[in-house]
């Protein structure tokens, strides 16, 4: 770097950078440290607290309810990896194609739900799924399937899937656009040929296109992983984690432990473990990708 003309004393740089950084530390890092501290105590809001060592973590390790919610997070990840990225890939091929009219309009429409508040999306889908006057039940009645009935939010087997549909609806546009951006780097004649000439070639070109999109897809996978770990409002408003605990996720569990059950000490431990788990997931995926990348090159 030619820094001759761009030299500044460290102090001067700090004068610029530190105010913002300190605010960041105060708003994000300090709460985490406080939580870490509280998680070693028995403090539930009473005037005095005492240290209990690793007790909260020992309970957490054996807490079936917590690990069940973590498994639910993983289930969401599994479903969303397929639905969001898979559908987005198909959508992208379509919208990218020069045979489609008003491509820009399609792009904007598909993307629209991504800007809505998750809490609003949760409430919308709650009405959509209602068995008596929900949108789906009404559409089915309208086209003659009077007896069509799915217990979208009442069946423990369905509920994660139902919520995943809502999530896919909200975010598929975002993934579509990312994948489209990735596709723009690929010679477009491959795509065109794939689309024009029918299904057989679509399949064949998928096997050509997909490897070329490796980096883009890996970005999408990371987004799904971190997206699911920070999910909260949508599930909160659509099912509250129910029926029972069938759709409870770690963020909701921490919330319940802190604010419903008032175990502030234990909830702190849950929050700390949540951070560790999601950083771990991302690290594992990165490692996996770099292994894969290494093998390629």
């Amino acid at each position: 770097m030619s820094k001759k003309s761009l030299q500044l004393s460290t102090g001067k740089i700090y004068a610029f950078v530190l105010p913002g950084f300190i605010l960041f530390i105060f708003s994000l890092m300090l709460p985490l440290l406080i939580s870490l501290f509280i998680s070693f105590t028995n403090w539930k809001g009473q005037p005095n607290m005492s240290f209990v060592g690793l007790k909260n973590y020992a309970i957490l390790m054996k807490d079936v309810k917590f690990w069940l919610s973590f498994v639910n997070n993983l289930k969401f990840m599994g479903i969303l990896l397929v639905t969001q990225i898979g559908l987005a890939f198909i959508f992208a091929i379509f919208i990218q194609s020069k045979s489609i009219y008003y491509r820009e309009a399609h792009r904007r429409i598909i993307f629209l739900p991504a800007v809505l508040a998750p809490i609003v999306v949760g409430m919308i889908w709650q009405i959509v799924y209602n068995n008596d006057y929900g949108m789906i039940a009404s559409v089915m009645r309208f086209i003659g399937f009077e007896n069509f009935k799915v217990l979208w939010l009442d069946s423990p087997k369905m509920v994660i899937f139902s919520i995943s549909i809502a999530l896919t609806w909200q975010y598929v546009g975002q993934f579509t656009i990312i994948i489209m951006a990735g596709m723009q780097n690929i010679n477009s004649s491959i795509l065109e040929a794939a689309v024009i000439d029918g299904a057989g070639i679509i399949r064949r070109s998928v096997s050509i296109v997909l490897p070329l999109l490796k980096n883009t897809i890996s970005v999408c996978v990371l987004m799904v992983i971190s997206g699911v770990m920070k999910m909260f409002d949508l599930v909160f408003s659509i099912s509250g984690g129910g029926p029972g605990r069938a759709s409870q996720i770690t963020a909701l569990y921490a919330f319940d432990q802190a604010f419903k059950v008032n175990k502030l000490d234990y909830a702190s431990a849950v929050a700390v473990v949540m951070v560790i788990l999601s950083l771990l997931l991302i690290a594992i995926f990165r490692l996996f990708m770099s292994r894969l990348g290494g093998a390629d090159e």
């Binding site: 009442d154 069946s155 423990p156 984690g241 129910g242 029972g244 419903k260 059950v261 008032n262 175990k263």
Partner: peptide, 20 residues
């Protein structure tokens, strides 16, 4: 107590849908 109630009330839901 709130903690027992949380287990009990969510449990009743699971019970009714046959999940426990």
């Amino acid at each position: 107590d709130a903690a027992v109630k949380d287990v009990y009330q969510r449990g009743l839901q699971s019970l009714l849908i046959g999940a426990v």
